[in-house]
């Protein structure tokens, strides 16, 4: 397969006054695990619906496996696997019946697709007579993935597959995606969890219908422009207020049980800044203070990009 699995070119979609997607462009390489990362309302689901031929873009174009999403919809439908964000299988049919049904409408069978779905189906098989509606969240999601894969698609679309799934199941799920990627499948996956973004080969950061940046997660994180400190104190709330009053502050936001503080200066060096902040906090009578310089991760980069979209679009261009 020489063609690029996915090319999105200036796709725009409006719903009445709302612009769901505004000039969205990116592309995928063969056998890539590509992430669409952004909060709810970023336009991820709309983009999925366009790429899976359920919606027509207002302007712009997109090709899936070299096929146009508007003109070649039937050719696309036979070759993609799609797992919508919401559980969309028949709750009154059993695991096996759902799987057999979706295999049959693609003109194949469970046995023919067996090799593809083997790693998941092994876990599902003990429950094959159970009704899909009675499965646990993690199992439902595995069944949905199975149903999206049983016809051996060339590209897989997963819309927020891990939303509402426990941490262990999430990790297992991403391990599975790695396995499928290794077998040559191209995968487009969306998520609102930043920690999952790092498991993608490349990501597109999205906000309010715009793509803020497209790159490898490590590159996006490294592009973070400010020195960054993790600050811990006994009273986090007071600490937040005090740090925001610091003259050189660029931004402060909660991150787990700590605060991430970024400084607007770049010249003094991160260790010098850490020392300054430490002494500033000492003058403010903040107790239990720990200040450490840290390397920015993708979430820091995303917060920065979200705060200044115009700056980021330039940076991306």
């Amino acid at each position: 397969m020489s063609a690029q699995p996915l090319v999105v070119d200036a796709v725009t979609k409006r719903f009445d006054a709302t612009v769901a997607l505004d000039q969205v462009s990116f592309d995928m390489r063969p056998a890539e695990l590509f992430g669409l990362v952004g909060p709810d309302g970023a336009g991820k689901t709309t983009l999925f619906r366009i790429l899976t031929t359920l919606l027509v873009p207002d302007s712009g174009s997109a090709t899936v496996l070299g096929l146009d999403v508007v003109k070649d919809l039937w050719a696309i439908r036979a070759r993609v696997g799609y797992m919508p964000g919401r559980f969309s299988l028949y709750p009154d049919l059993s695991v096996e019946e759902n799987l057999r049904f979706f295999a049959s409408v693609f003109g194949t069978s469970i046995d023919e697709g067996r090799e593809m779905i083997e790693p998941i189906y092994n876990q599902l098989e003990p429950f094959k007579d159970r009704r899909a509606g009675a499965l646990s969240g993690g199992m439902k999601q595995k069944l949905a993935l199975c149903c999206a894969l049983v016809h051996r698609p060339d590209i897989l679309f997963l819309d927020e597959p891990t939303t509402g799934v426990d941490a262990v199941s999430r990790r297992e799920f991403w391990d599975l995606l790695d396995t499928f990627k290794a077998s040559g499948l191209s995968i487009l996956v969306s998520t609102a969890y930043m920690d999952e973004a790092t498991r993608c080969d490349r990501v597109a950061l999205m906000q309010q219908g715009h793509v803020l940046a497209v790159d490898r997660p490590s590159v996006i994180a490294a592009r973070y422009p400010h020195p960054l400190l993790a600050v811990h104190a006994t009273e986090r709330h007071a600490l937040l207020r005090i740090l925001r009053s610091y003259p050189h502050v660029a931004s402060v936001y909660p991150f787990g049980d700590k605060l991430h503080y970024s400084d607007s200066r770049t010249d003094p060096g991160v260790d010098a800044i850490a020392a300054e902040v430490r002494s500033f906090l000492a003058t403010q009578n903040v107790s239990g203070v720990r200040v450490e310089p840290i390397a920015p991760n993708i979430e820091d980069a995303f917060m920065e990009l979200m705060g200044a979209p115009e700056k980021l679009i330039q940076a991306a261009a």
């Binding site: 031929t53 439908r77 299988l89 028949y90 409408v105 693609f106």
Partner: peptide, 12 residues
């Protein structure tokens, strides 16, 4: 149930 969307992304 969303199954209609799922069916619409098949060759049916």
């Amino acid at each position: 149930a969303g199954t209609l969307d799922q069916l619409n992304v098949t060759p049916i």
